[in-house]
Design a protein around this nucleic acid. Sequence first.
DNA 1: ATCGATCTGCACAGTTCGTTCACATCGCCG
DNA 2: CGGCGATGTGAACGAACTGTGCAGATCGAT
Lengths: 225, 225
Amino acid sequence: MRERRILVVEDERTIADSIAVRLRAEGFTVGLAGDGPSAVEAARREPPDLVVLDVMLPGFDGLEVCRRIQATRPVPVLMLTARDDENDMLVGLAVGADDYITKPFSMRELAARVHALLRRVDRAQAVGPQPIVLGDLEINQAERRVSRSGVEAHLTPTEFDLLVHLAGRPRTVLPRERLLAEVWGWGDGAGTRTVDSHVKALRRKLGADLIRTVHGVGYALEVRP
Amino acid sequence: MRERRILVVEDERTIADSIAVRLRAEGFTVGLAGDGPSAVEAARREPPDLVVLDVMLPGFDGLEVCRRIQATRPVPVLMLTARDDENDMLVGLAVGADDYITKPFSMRELAARVHALLRRVDRAQAVGPQPIVLGDLEINQAERRVSRSGVEAHLTPTEFDLLVHLAGRPRTVLPRERLLAEVWGWGDGAGTRTVDSHVKALRRKLGADLIRTVHGVGYALEVRP
DNA sequence: ATCGATCTGCACAGTTCGTTCACATCGCCG
DNA sequence: CGGCGATGTGAACGAACTGTGCAGATCGAT
């Protein structure tokens, strides 16, 4: 994985340093900013993968920073709020923060939140072929392996591709034509039962309840814990 | 991308016009409302993609407007608040606003916020299109699932499409001919009882009080909390 | 070229769905 | 209150859709 850059926006030097030390120990590259304007400037100069942001800041406040940073490019934001200040939290989440943590907090907790946030974003962006986990279904794209409830199933190439496409939009009903277009690359496969055949194969190998058929439309992958 | 509709609710004519001009220049379709009731009416008639809402309004206040508009369909709301009135801002966010901006503000700033909000919403929808929520009725188009008061009902394709059309204009009476045209694509279905049959099926599956019949005209979907 | 695995499309069967019909009710209006 | 047209109701028929098994075609490896 490529290097991760985190921008820490915090005016209290002690806290800022503690955070920086801990995050560097976790393998991140850390940038620091002590006020609003320099935070925005830093974010623009070197776009971070995540921002740790104190709501109480000199210059203009953290919410404003959050908005301005998000204005140029969507980036996950972890907000630091005063204890019990539910207002800050509410407003923060409203203007685009993705998570928050109340002072005082432990560095261990902060690091955990940071990792969790990055993981969430990674999954959302589906950048790398990291294993997809949907309930009891596990799909390892890199190894082209699939298992359900820990039991591995042998899938043919087409079956695997079809499953991955269904898993890409879990629970969503995908019309046959769309599957034919995306998996098979057919512009028009009207009147073909090919999709059905492969769905049947998937059901036989992974369980009949995995794929829901929506009459007159198509199929959807169910997610069951 | 499809055309974006923005509803501006603002009683001061000068400000409203300035906003409209700017947003139109940005490529949006802009609707205007000068008071609470007409705002709610306008939102129902032509559901906007975003609402710019002044908290100070004649009729009933902006918060009430916000609640009523959101009651039918979740839509991002950008609130205009008086300077330093933190109460307005907090309450606004509590009732469903997604961002706020304090007067006075520049049109450039407003446009930036609008774009940022729409981007955020898009990102959220990329993960999963939000279900339509109308009172105790919930319609998930992507999954083609419908539930009322948390109880899921199995709908046939036609029933689902009909319901979605009715839900698109809640409380509005839709004539049979129009439903036949939009759902069935029939130019002329005079003398047919098809609509009635499917309405009956919907009532049986989702409750008799969901759809109101207007004698001699057609049907309307009711919204009850 | 041969073999095995896989893919595709078809025929058949079972199921679901849509439409219409006949009849019962309802609502409007004089 | 009585009649007429509109609507609710249940059943039934045919049409459309999907599940299933299978055979031929295709592809890649030996």
